[in-house]
Design a protein around this nucleic acid. Structure first.
Length: 463
RNA sequence: GUACUCAUAGCUCAAUUGGCAGAGCUUCUGACUGUUAAUCAGAGGGUUAAAGGUUCAAAUCCUUUUGAGUACGCCA
């Protein structure tokens, strides 16, 4: 079989090969340079951003006019070291099979395209250098996430995609239903009767796997989820997507302070992994996306994250020698401009802000002794903003129930969640890390639509 | 959802502010070359996003629609 006998271009370029003779490669043509007595092709197979140069010493023997940029080829030949050229190894072609031709209206040109244009051709953009690099990078960091938690003894759990519980405060849900919109069943009050729906109640796509992660943490100890998350918010920003991937660790017997140590360690681990294990990708980002990205990451690895309370943050902002569009008052949520000031101007590094006012945070966050604040933490980073939101959870049955009643929640629906606090309750903590946001931060890519292969944003679900 | 900005050749952009729609790249043809975003010469390519209005004259001004970008809100 050709598939298993071919050699990956990455291995060839690293000279990780058994023989220089009878080598077979499969890939796509990036450029073609033809003259009477010699021709060159550059072939890419997705294993690396680099191309393999194919040398054709007798161009008239090959149907080169049919081989255009974008065509897929199978090439047999032998390899040769070429010490004094741009590439150190290249392939002399002996046999070329055209698997698929590419007409001359192939839209990807041999030049730079704008990110906005490439978003409109999401089916072809993975073939560009930037996006193939982004996707290889995404793969490597996904692996790093599993590696980190597995090595720490966390268990990977699968929280449901379809859920009846709205993790309050996390955002609007997409509805999941099999009801006939043209003929909705109504109850006596004239409202839609969800009892007749598929699940017998109103359901939606998950906005967070946290509640289920808490269930699993109270059985398995340390767990994490890593999966898609959906928010139906009409958000139009460079850092929001309607479908994104989130990592949610949940740890039994863990308090806020201990979790913050994990957050800092985890983020630094990912940075180090990127620099060491995704060398090619980081080099590409450093050269083509943001100069100095690697150095910035290295500085953060060596730095200690700032840790302040919300109250301290408010005091810093009040003393700031800068005017803000929105006022800073204790009890109000921090605005993006405030967060940016803290992380970009004041500390110039990631900041962990804790102990937010009770009134602006979700019901499940543990109330502090002052009864004014909760044991919450947000991790802010320059440029991207909030990449982590987490908290120690309220483990006291009565306190949680009272809080839920105050928020007019349907206690019956969350009885199972409350029962975790009834039987062998433990202090526990967890957080959510936006996968795309950490990828953006490490790579320097400025728009979330360019770090996920098929972005879903309001008005856009093509491809 | 709100505010602002933008939409001109396949792509990236000009058009001296209301006065003959143009360049580079891509593509095609030819020449030449161990080339490497090859090079050189030539050719092709347009309902200026759509609809309407003002004007002797609109890519340019006005209205509406559509799409995009940025900022904000919501959050990860």
């Amino acid at each position: 079989m050709d598939y298993f006998k071919r050699t990956k271009i990455k291995d060839i370029l690293q000279k990780d090969i058994e023989s220089y003779q009878d080598v077979k490669v499969l890939g796509w043509v990036k450029t073609k340079r033809v003259s009477k007595n010699i021709a060159f092709l550059e072939l890419n197979d997705g294993s690396t951003v680099k191309n393999l140069q194919i040398v054709i010493l007798n161009p008239s023997d090959f149907a080169l006019e049919e081989i255009n940029r974008g065509a897929s080829l199978k090439i047999k030949g032998y390899l040769e070291d070429v010490p004094n050229r741009e590439q150190s190894i290249e392939m002399k072609a002996e046999k070329i099979d055209i698997i698929g031709t590419a007409p001359d209206n192939y839209i990807l040109q041999k030049k730079e395209h704008s990110f906005e244009f490439l978003r409109e051709i999401a089916h072809l953009r993975p073939r560009t250098k930037t996006f193939s690099t982004v996707n290889r990078f995404r793969n490597k960091i996904s692996y790093a996430i599993h590696k980190y938690y597995q090595e720490k003894g966390f268990q990977y759990i699968h929280s449901p995609i379809i859920t009846a519980s709205d993790a309050e405060g996390a955002g609007e849900m997409f509805k999941v239903t099999t009801l006939d919109f043209e003929n909705l069943p109504k109850n006596d009050q004239g409202e839609v009767n969800y009892q007749e729906d598929f699940f017998g109640e109103q359901t939606g796509l998950t906005v967070s796997g946290q509640l289920e992660a808490e269930v699993m943490a109270t059985a398995l100890g340390d767990v994490y989820t890593f999966g898609p998350t959906f928010r139906a918010e009409n958000s139009n920003t460079s850092r929001h997507a309607s479908e994104f991937w989130m990592i949610e660790p949940e740890m039994a017997f863990c308090n806020l302070e201990e979790m913050m140590d994990l957050i800092e360690d985890f983020i630094k681990y990912l940075f180090e992994y990127a620099i060491e294990e995704a060398e090619e990708e980081m080099e590409f980002f450093d050269q083509n996306i943001e100069k100095g990205r690697k150095e910035t990451l290295q500085k953060i690895i060596n730095a200690t994250f700032a840790r302040i309370t919300y109250t301290e943050a408010v005091n810093i902002l009040k003393k700031a020698d800068q005017s803000f569009e929105f006022p800073v008052e204790w009890g109000m949520d921090l605005q993006t401009e405030h967060e940016r000031y803290l992380t970009e101007k004041h500390f110039k590094k990631p900041v962990l802000v804790t102990d937010y006012p009770l009134g602006i945070k979700a019901f499940y966050m543990r109330a502090n002794d002052d009864n004014q604040t909760v044991a919450a933490v947000d991790c802010l980073v320059p440029e991207v903003g909030e990449i982590i939101g987490g908290s120690q959870r309220e483990e006291r049955y009565d306190v949680l129930k009272k809080r839920m009643e105050e928020e007019n929640m349907n206690i019956d629906k969350y009885e199972w969640f409350l029962e975790l606090r009834k039987f062998g309750t433990v202090p526990h903590s967890g957080f959510g890390l936006g996968f795309e946001r950490i990828l953006m931060y490490i790579s320097g890519i400025k728009n979330i639509r360019d770090i996920i292969p098929f972005p879903r944003t309001p008005g856009n679900a093509r491809f």
